[in-house]
């Protein structure tokens, strides 16, 4: 009984903060303008790469390249939005709206509050993702062959991947608790580093050797490779760095790293929030 009540309460926290996040994301414009603005950025990002391919390879470019970058680019929308979005909450609440102290003293679990705020960005990422898929289907020679049998594995790995980026977002969020306003550059930079090192739009095998080892250790890289294999119904992709590693092994690795991230994010968030409190900077506004 007590467990059910606790779970209900935790659910309410996540739901309320997700609603708050959604209002902040969307209530500044009417829905049509908001929808246009939500879709225009990922579309532009997609077109940049399409035109780079056209410029470098001409109209006869191999569909393998398109398939590879397209899947990576679409999934990365989640990485960028959730990772950057959660850490951005600190700056919004602390520096801009100056409400963080009220949230801190309210009877909500802070960790879950930030998870909930991340859900609003998850919705934005999902909309962008759907639009990108439609645009990709219209403008690119994509060849997706996912079988019904592969779908459960895909769904499972996708959920694992999403959960892992939520935990990474919380770790970034914990770091920003002790940073000044310009600390948001840190989260932008981390997203950028992931964009390069996780093989989002090009194979990891194109990177220098010393960087390949680092890249394959990041859970997002494995998540992208799993998704590509299952969507394309292929045992491997053009990224030779993963040849010799089975899809099941990749899913196992993703599950393990997600569990590690979960534990680490809880401990790290608790430590950093205590540190921010002990330094008296939880509600500090830096104005520079």
């Amino acid at each position: 009984m007590a467990i059910t009540a606790t779970l209900k309460r935790l659910y309410k926290i996540v739901k309320s903060s997700a609603w708050l996040g959604w209002q902040l994301e969307s209530n500044w414009a009417d829905p049509l303008i908001f929808a246009i603005i939500t879709i225009i950025r990922p579309l532009a990002q997609l077109f940049i790469i399409i035109f780079m391919f056209r410029f470098a390879l001409g109209p006869g470019a191999s569909p393998d390249f398109f398939n590879f970058f397209f899947i990576g680019n679409v999934i990365y929308l989640y990485v960028y939005n959730v990772l950057f979005g959660i850490s951005q909450v600190i700056f919004e609440d602390r520096e801009h709206y100056e409400v963080i102290k009220y949230i801190y003293i309210s009877p909500v679990n802070w960790y879950l509050y930030f998870i909930g705020r991340g859900f609003a960005r998850l919705i934005v990422a999902t909309v962008s993702c759907i639009v990108s898929i439609i645009a990709g289907a219209l403008f690119l020679p994509l060849k997706f062959n996912m079988t019904a049998a592969a779908f459960p594995a895909f769904a499972f790995s996708f959920i694992l991947g999403l959960i892992s980026i939520f935990f990474m977002g919380i770790i970034m969020c914990a770091l920003t608790l002790v940073m000044a306003r310009h600390g948001n550059m840190m989260s932008e930079s981390i997203s950028g580093i992931f964009f390069i090192s996780c093989g989002v739009i090009f194979p990891i095998s194109s990177l220098p050797l010393w960087l390949q080892g680092v890249s394959t250790a990041i859970p997002i890289s494995g998540w992208l490779e799993i998704s590509r294999r299952l969507i394309l119904n292929a045992p491997t992709t053009i990224d030779s760095v993963w040849h010799g590693v089975s899809t099941a092994d990749l899913i196992y690795r993703l599950g393990f790293s997600t569990a590690v991230l979960c534990v680490f994010s809880v401990i790290f968030f608790h430590f950093m929030s205590m540190l921010a409190r002990s330094k008296g900077i939880i509600d500090r506004t830096t104005s520079y």
């Binding site: 970058f69 310009h182 932008e188």
Partner: peptide
């Protein structure tokens, strides 16, 4: 700020340069 302002544009540069390199 200086570090980020110099470092930040390098990220997309590297990403897109590697795209051309992979081709």
């Amino acid at each position: 700020w200086l570090i980020f302002e110099l470092f930040f544009p390098l990220l997309p540069i590297c990403a897109f340069a590697f795209v051309y390199k992979s081709m």
